[in-house]
Amino acid sequence: MSESKKFRLAVIPGDGIGKEVVREGLRVLDFFEQNSGGKYSFESDFFPWGCEYYLEHGKMMDEDGVDKLRDYDAIYFGAVGFPGVPDHVSLWGLRIAICQGLDQWANIRPVEFLPGVPRRLNHPEADKLNWVLIRENSEGEYSGVGGRNFTGRGPGKEVAVQSSLFTEHGCERIIRYAFDLARTRKRKKVTSVTKSNAQQFGMVLWDEVFEHVSKEYPDVETDQWLVDAMAAQFVLRPEELEVVVASNLFADILSDLGSALSGSLGIAASANLNPERRTPSMFESVHGSAPDIAGKGIANPIGTIGSAALMLDHLGLQEEAEQLNQAIRETTRQGYLTRDLGGTHNTEEITDAIIDNLGKIQANQDTKEKSTSH
């Protein structure tokens, strides 16, 4: 028997419902470990960083927090933000600090229309829609370049400058990543989204890099849209979407639109990747900390559990990742839905159903393997 593989996870539940949904995701990982036949295990170290930590220590995470995360195989993240701490403080102090500090430059946000989920989009083949947003995750509009000044001039005189930063290197690596991903999908297509008619420097550079890179992928279909027209395309012609690549801000907004169209932000998973694997990648749901429902046990865990599937795939457990995605689809098909999807089931009940379906999927697979071996 080969030696068991131990995956070291840094778990940051964060704020609000982040703590609740991360707990459910870890229950799923525990199921996989217990049924792996000793092939692998997960060792989780918890970090209490977030808004409560900020109110006590004046910072969102330890000063050397990023360095503490470097030796882990992956980071499992809940959500950030809570009343009493300004959103820009909580976001920049934790999530963005980790993404930039570990150069997690590719943010992957799949959009899938799960069976049984009430449709928010009037489309004749909504169940077949499936695309993925590739978000540049290290620079662009979230580069943090800028400042505020002239407060000494008196009330109403202050000036704020927020600059977007686009580098040829940053544009090329995310665009190339999108093309490489497109080659793995049934339809090989990449759609680039900018606003280069109005933003004549950074986004024209993006367009030029896209044109340059596309010539190296003659087998991949391409098109280019301005972001406002792309938002309309999400609603009017979503069947034309496959791999969509965009800047930090635009992909952030469009992914929320895609998640809303597919049912709820509560079902949207994401991965913050360092594709070179020089540093650990971070996996989190798209939704926020939802302070209004925190502690009520009604949060939708599917986005965070789906993010665990992305994490399993990243760790080389592709079969387990596919099993988990299949279990999620079967759970929603059976009508297990939380309140954000018009259902009545609570957080734990959804996870229980997913784990139950996982057990059945694995049992069926074992039966098929035994029958073929004879």
Rank of each mutant, 00 (worst) to 15 (best):
G101P: 04
I302V: 15
E349D: 05
G58I: 00
E52D: 15
R187P: 10
F283I: 09
Y76M: 10
Q34M: 11
D223E: 12
F210E: 09
G78S: 12
G144L: 05
S270V: 04
I302H: 05
L315T: 09
L55D: 05
G58V: 07
I354P: 03
N357K: 12
E136D: 05
G144I: 06
L236Y: 14
Q224W: 14
A79G: 09
M1R: 14
H314S: 15
R277T: 03
L273G: 03
S164E: 14
R148E: 15
E136Y: 02
E330Y: 02
E139H: 06
A269I: 01
I96W: 11
Y76G: 06
V190Y: 05
A79P: 02
Y336Q: 05
E242N: 14
Y53Q: 06
D352P: 07
A299S: 10
G295I: 01
Q318Y: 13
S41F: 10
G170A: 15
L241E: 00
D223K: 10
L310M: 13
L249V: 10
V209P: 08
I12N: 06
H345P: 11
H345G: 03
I253F: 09
N272A: 13
M203S: 01
L29E: 07
V159T: 13
E141I: 00
M61L: 12
A353F: 11
R148L: 14
L91Y: 12
